[in-house]
Design a protein around this nucleic acid. Sequence first.
RNA 1: GCCCCCGUAGCUCAGUUGGAUAGAGCAUCGGAUUUCUAAUCCGAGGGUCACAGGUUCGAAUCCUGUCGGGGGUACCA
Length: 553
Amino acid sequence: MSSIENMLRDALISALKKMDMEVSSLPQIDLSKSKQKGHGDLASNIALMLASQKKENPRALAESIIQHLELPDDVSKVDVAGPGFINFTFHPNVHYQTLRQVLKEGSNYGRSDWGKGQKTQVEFVSANPTGPLTIGHGRQAVLGDTVSRLLEATGHDVTREYYFNDAGRQMRVLGESVQLRFQELIGESVDFPDDYYQGDYIVEIARKGLEEKSETFKDDEDLIYFRNLAETEIFDLIKSTLVRLGIHFDVFFNEKSLYESGKIKAVLQTLRDKDLAYDQDGAVWFRTTKFGMEQDRVIVKSTGEPTYRLPDIAYHKEKMDRGFDRIIDIFGADHIATYPDVLAGMQALGYDSSKVQVLIHQFVTLTEGKEKMKMSTRKANFVTLDELMDEVGEDVTRYFFLNRSMSSHLNFDLTLAKTQSDENPVYYVQYAHARICSILRKAEEQGIPVDSDPDLSLLQTPEEMDLIKTLREFPSIVTEATRQFEPHRLPGYLEELATVYHRFQHGGRQDESLRVLTSDIEIAQARLALCRATQIVLANGLKILGISRPEKM
RNA sequence: GCCCCCGUAGCUCAGUUGGAUAGAGCAUCGGAUUUCUAAUCCGAGGGUCACAGGUUCGAAUCCUGUCGGGGGUACCA
């Protein structure tokens, strides 16, 4: 955050003091970028806020504030507009200074260290290995990875973690599904139940099994064999899909290890000791009502098998014990009811549950033309992430999932996605980057010397100034996107930046004097510096999104 | 029944803790090119911000209710 905002804030406060205002009861002074051109560089609604508090006319109040205001040197103009906004216009030097900063910081521009030293864990995907990753998983995978990248860009120490369970009923059914397909392959006639895994990939795995096994006896040992085979094969598949998407996990955490290390039992015992767990109807209940919930919840079924809550709580305790300062869980909307139990569990065990931040994203609904499809791994009516990437490419896939806010349903029209791949805004952004690379190459070919300290004050056209002002926003876009966990702000910003750049460069088509490589060498050098700065910001932004930065298109 | 998310242009979606004339892309229509990459630019049309009340200087945004879509409300995860 550049200090000009702070200087203005201080100036406003001292102006208000002069007016005998109660500074302590002041609403927070909001200084935000003016929404429209002609309204200056920053706008404050302080007069409007105070007017409502004091029941005074906001415009008159704004005028009065201005009269008492001592402007910092870098602010060249101040005026009152609309219902009572105070608009500030910067001296152009502020903008040239921004440009120098971008060029100096290079790939660090936009990065910050406000998360310095914060050990942060991000858990996402966490799909059990029962089938290939689908478009539904894709949204979470890309969101989780990008949230992680944002956290890294703001200085956090991030661990990406994938939690899975290979011991449950799902996995048993999976193993049996493979076994049945195997029996078919060796010529036995089998009855394949409707609610078993229908996908072709099951047959593929069974075929793999045929390479090392020639018969099956339907005993437990066989079942374990097929279950394990399925798990390794499917996990390989999942990992290769993730690699393709540019996602690397630091830790794959197996739920089973919580049982083996006795941590599940220990949690249960602790809850019992604290009288937060009790027996009833043959099951063990967790007193969630103690933590403000409507009813208690079962944590161990009467069969003796824990419900998902118990291992989830034990897992989060494990995370806490590993010393993370922040724990971020990314879940689909179907898990919305489960996390309060986990948070209650943390409180019950004496941990600070505010360290856990749960991000819920809405579902992907898949349509093909007008058909609405309900995705189900079991029934094998899904589109895999790999198929999507084959069709539209990795960059489009990532962008598609990132361009929308988590809280809105993502309507995925397959036919549209295919035809739209040419029109996808990601190309628009990448093209701006490629165009800059091209122009820089051209400058080199023409032998224009690189001036490390060009006269930036030669940049004066509205297009040039717009571009610089847009570059100036980047760091706060990154920090806000991180703070609010809203990755979609970044693609929106990059599209805006690309637009402003394209407009700038387009000007040169009609008018030679507006070209970057214009005959006036000094102007050319100043514009080349502007191009380099834009390239830096586009590249830094795309990198955070995990999208490639082509030098040619 | 109760709880959570969503409802904004023909379509897909933005809209910063309540602020200035509600925006963008796609689609449609009209213009610009012997290009520093037309994967570009400029312009036009297109809106009862689901509906009805309320809060106030000001509401797409906050509150209440209704309708519609999705998800939950398990001794499934």
